[in-house]
Each structure stands twice: as structure tokens, then as C-alpha cells.
Amino acid sequence: MSALPKLAVWKFASCDGCQLSLLDLEDHLLALAGKVTIAYFLEASSTVLPGPYDVSLVEGSITTPEDAHRIKQVRRQSRLVATIGACATAGGIQALRNFTDVRDYIPVVYAHPEYIKTLDKSTPISDHIPVDFQLPGCPINKNQLLEFIKALLQGRTPRLADESVCLACKIKGNICVMVAEGVPCLGPVTHAGCGALCPTYHRGCYGCYGPKEAANTASLSARCRHLGLSDQDIVRLFRTFNAYAEPFRQESLAHE
């Protein structure tokens, strides 16, 4: 029997939601289990096989000195590293602390601050090691994850769109909430992949998938001002799950 590719799933600072997307593959999961050896996936199994691994899926951001060290070990043992989700790809919601001083928060949250050892910033995996693929999203889309894994197994390039959320909206026939209702929407600057989930339910896009390539956040902000948003509103618009992704970070800082 030829050896199956070994898959490892690693968790750093995160909510586990993206790992759940893997378990959420349901019907496809059994088929997948026949195609890869799940060698390290603590959320699914306590069985741990030693490295090296063919593919490492990394969830979560780097927030502690230990994790900054551990991610380097993951890289050393992995042929391919792919980040899954906004935390691993952009620093996550916890990167909101990057805009303040984390030391101010520790005594508020923890009874014994002296036990807490944390880094100043929550940073994406790519700040620490070379990353081969990045799957954005909070959480990732399970179909995108499946497409990524299938592409690896079939030896082809994964089909991961680089366009804005608007394309999905128009293909679905969603009436644009920004134009028809004056609702601020990050869709035009946000990476596709969610299937335009929020606009389909008449909400502006929250930017869960982070900035698309060449995201023109300044122009969108100018229009949001025209729609009546204050600087503070614009800061909040860009400071969510991908607050530390560079175009969103710069845009929120410009309105602080």
C-alpha cells in the first residue's frame, strides 16, 4: 500500500471555528479520510503520529513567545503550510489589541497578571514563517477548504478567487445594499469566498475574508463619509476580524 499524504492541523490563538469547518465537511470527511492520513488533529483525534507532514493546516495567530517558537517547529516538519482563517492569515479579532497597549488589559482580565506571558501584538503566521497558501475567512468556507485539499491531492492549482465579494453578489442577483439602501458595505474591498453571505441577508459585508488584492479602502471610506459615517464609524468598520491586515489597518489608522 502506498503511503497516503500526511495531514496535520495545528492550533494557535484562535476559537477553533476553522478546525470545525474541517469536521463540518461531513459527507466528504470519510472520503477525505481515505485519501490522507490525519496525522495530527487534536480537535478530532488524540492519536498523534510523528512528523514530517506533507500538509500542515495552521489555525490561529501568534500571541505568545511559546507559540512564536512552536510555529517554527511546525514549518520545519511540514512540506506545505497553509493558514486557515482570519487569525492565522491576518492576526484575527485578537489583533485589536495591537492598536493599544496589551499591558493595560492584563490586570483587568486576569486575577493573577504575574502568570501571564504574552507578546505585544497578535500577528499572522506569515510574519513568522514562510507560508505556502492562505485561506482567508472568519471562519473559512468549508467548500474552499475542500477545494484546496482536493487540488493538493490532484496535483493542480487550487481555484481560490481573488475578486471582491461584489462578483458573488451580482451572480446571485442580490440588490446592492450600499447603492439601494445606503448601508456601508466592505464587499467591494473584501476577498471573495463566503458566497456574499451577509449581503444576501441585507447586511453590509463585515469583511470577514479580509482585504482583496488592490483593496481601495480610501475610496470606499470617502464614500462612507458621504453616506454619513463618522471617522469613528469608519475605524470600527475596518477594525474587526481582519483589523491587522495591512490595507484595513492603514485605513482605520487614517481615521483615528
Binding site: 466528504h28 482536493k150 471582491s164 462578483l167 464587499g187 467591494p188 481601495n216 475610496s219
Partner: peptide
């Protein structure tokens, strides 16, 4: 000013560009 979002082309009644995507099972 342009967002490169593609909305103008998507709502244009004459724009005709499309792409082909192949979906392959596991």
C-alpha cells in the same frame, strides 16, 4: 477612486466576459 470591484461590468447589459471553472470530486 475605482474599487476594482467589477460592479459596472456586472450590471452592464452588454458586458459578456465569463470564465470557465471545473469542479472535480475528491
Amino acid at each position: 477612486r475605482c474599487l476594482n470591484c467589477g460592479n459596472c461590468a456586472l450590471v452592464c447589459p452588454t458586458c459578456f466576459c465569463h470564465r470557465l471553472e471545473d469542479a472535480i470530486d475528491l
